[in-house]
Design a protein around this nucleic acid. Sequence first.
DNA 1: CTAATTTTGTACTAATTGTTACAAAAATAA
DNA 2: TTATTTTTGTAACAATTAGTACAAAATTAG
Lengths: 195, 195
Amino acid sequence: MSKSGRPREFKDTAVIDAAVEVFWSQGYGACSTDDLCKETGLGRGSLYNAFGSKHELYEQALIRYHQVGIEAQLEILNNDAPVKERLQELLEWEIREGSTAKDRGCLLINASVERGKTDPTVERIFKQHVALLEQALEKTIREGQSAGEISRERDTSELTALFLSCCYGLRVIYPGTMNRALARQIIEGTLAAIF
Amino acid sequence: MSKSGRPREFKDTAVIDAAVEVFWSQGYGACSTDDLCKETGLGRGSLYNAFGSKHELYEQALIRYHQVGIEAQLEILNNDAPVKERLQELLEWEIREGSTAKDRGCLLINASVERGKTDPTVERIFKQHVALLEQALEKTIREGQSAGEISRERDTSELTALFLSCCYGLRVIYPGTMNRALARQIIEGTLAAIF
DNA sequence: CTAATTTTGTACTAATTGTTACAAAAATAA
DNA sequence: TTATTTTTGTAACAATTAGTACAAAATTAG
């Protein structure tokens, strides 16, 4: 059917991955379509032909980042290690994620802060990301309560909200200050507050 | 001495306050010098004559926001109400601050996320802001421990880091999701974790 | 082969950007 | 008054921006 024509010289996923890097390092407004062309290796023609606009590529990059990130976090949470170990591993992951090589924090927080109030797509993805993490955390914490690791007396959704807030606080404070001692105290303090 | 010449038709502080509004609502990159002229009421000549550049005005706006914000937070913390009430009031203030009318979060977080990695001035002010809040929190929490409101068994700096992280998490999650129920749970969960 | 279709690279466009130049305006100092 | 100094508004500039036009290139269908 529709198989004729010159074939593409690139894989969409590789281009989107490269775009994630650009948007993550520079932000949406601060990067140019030229930067995107250079880093993805595409010419303007190809880029616009394949993705339509800078904004549509941004959308795809956010969704990809969201999916990869959520998958990694769920893998940590849906483990069979003790709940305390899982939660600690998640916090350590937050630090690693936002500080590997370039210290650019969390792309979704960056996007929400930069464009969340004017860009419905960004708002939607951010809300979804928070909701999914919240949901997975609640399940894990409830598990910890069932197993007797966490006191059953305490309100599950309050514990969840507490941990969630600490995650996002860490994602902002650590990349912003690069204060490793403070980050460690946040991790210790968060775990001590729950167990 | 140097009193001659045409007098200014504006007060610097009023201009900086107006600039805070612009940078807070739009961010640094997304607002133009035209926007700044319109909102401050100055012509381009006056603005550049008085402040030098967009970036210098940004710097002044950040410092002003920082000073006003820290003052308000210290006033809440250095009270004679029970420590629990002070900390609760601080969390409520975070929500109000980031959601009055325009839901634009915390200007310093916004600045750190948008420009912290490329702008040393932003990095410096953000670090200072975090450090000052941390210091004031630690003092208050230690006070709570002395008064017997908070268990003396628990590590003071861990409790401080925990609360700090929750503050910043709240400042990101609430403006980003506008989920009031979640914000309330974060407040309840944070207080329950300390008292 | 030819015709059709899609991708690719380049040149271009129209708009916006931060900043500067500069003359007119408004004040003080003598 | 006249000379001096500073502010103000306008006009302009050079650079950069996201997006488009379009022809050449590369493939498939028949």
